[in-house]
Design a protein around this nucleic acid. Structure first.
Lengths: 198, 198
DNA sequence: TTACTTTTAGTACCTAGTCATAAATCCGGG
DNA sequence: CCCGGATTTATGACTAGGTACTAAAAGTAA
């Protein structure tokens, strides 16, 4: 069944978005029109040719891949840090951080930002989270910018460092956590660790 | 400076690995040989042509992207689930989950697995973590497989569901957490839902 | 020199297009 | 019925970045 021009072009866009690897010839067959018509359609819709589309996808993923691992080290951008005292990081909630249906940020990303910051604020070769009590105060939505503020508040008798992290969207508290951090360079007193070397 | 065949082919492989978008012509210029020589080299080294390379990169990233979002929905693979009762997931600690220097898993990944499982076990349209108390019992290393077991243990007077999650490597407890989950359909008593989106 | 490897050149063909021009077809109004 | 604009199709010339094959030239070692 041949569709109207409008309808065909709408479906064309959708088809290519879903599968950028489709050729004009395949599209022509799919819509029962000539290849030339498909090309006219692409021209009108400013859809580039197959090879350009593929190149674009490849370029993007290539750039992403390079960025992926090193960036993972710290979740959020640290914008201020005073070692063993305090630190601040910002984290922009994007599409990939939210539940698809509700657009609400998944808890572990807020945790990751806070945990990451707690690790970073510890001025030591090795810092690990031993224990944490956290509270998700209010939901964070896609597009919001979360500012996490970490403050070193003290030490436990077992020598762990306690870090409080509060995260805000604007003036509003959205997340709050207390982290007990294990660190390697405690004067002495080695509890239960094995080795840690580079 | 013209290199030996061996040396040129070694560099050729490296060059293409680093930048798959390079044409034979550009390579010919780079190594001061003819385009035909480059093609012979590619043939001997079984390196596909530019377009195939790009297509490959694009295909991979496209598959990743399609997999990335829905897969991100749950961290770890759920291998068993009894809605509103219990669930089990496994999570293999890979390179991207550990601190580079120590090869110890970053806390937020263990948290993410547990949190994700706590969300999944709740048989409801919307489940969000309101509060969590967690403990990282022992360090998890790259290559280890973490099995998380979630159990719904009760409800708070405010109507939240409490989920306990314990994660193990082998028989050893590595992570333990108590999650207080907010859920949308708290009053609803019926078991089966007919709507399954996504 | 001869024998062999390596490199270069040239041709025909391929895919998945571009651009431009022209012709055919469709669809509605008068 | 014919007319006219929109739409579709056809055709030809050209492109990039190749493959596949043949042939010749250049380099190298005994």
């Amino acid at each position: 069944m041949r569709k109207s021009k409008r309808e065909r072009q709408r479906l064309l866009q959708e088809t290519i978005r879903e599968n950028p690897f489709v050729t004009d010839e395949e599209l022509a067959e799919k819509f029962s029109v000539s290849v030339q018509t498909i090309r006219l359609d692409r021209l009108e819709l400013s859809i580039p040719e197959l090879r350009e589309r593929i190149k674009h996808v490849a370029r993007q993923s290539f750039a992403d891949k390079v960025r992926a691992l090193p960036l993972e080290e710290v979740i959020g951008d640290i914008i201020d840090i005073e070692p063993d005292a305090s630190a601040i990081s910002i984290f922009d909630v994007k599409e990939e951080h939210v539940f698809r249906r509700t657009r609400i940020a998944r808890g572990h990303h807020l945790f990751a930002q806070a945990n990451s910051l707690a690790v970073a604020v510890i001025h030591d070769e090795l810092a690990l989270t031993a224990k944490a009590t956290i509270r998700f105060v209010r939901q964070v939505k896609e597009g919001e910018r979360v500012v996490a503020k970490a403050k070193v508040t003290g030490k436990t008798e077992s020598g762990r460092t306690v870090v409080d992290v509060n995260s805000y969207v604007g003036q509003e508290l959205v997340f709050s956590g207390t982290f007990e951090m294990y660190r390697s360079n405690m004067e002495k007193k080695d509890g239960d660790s094995n080795e840690h070397r580079d």
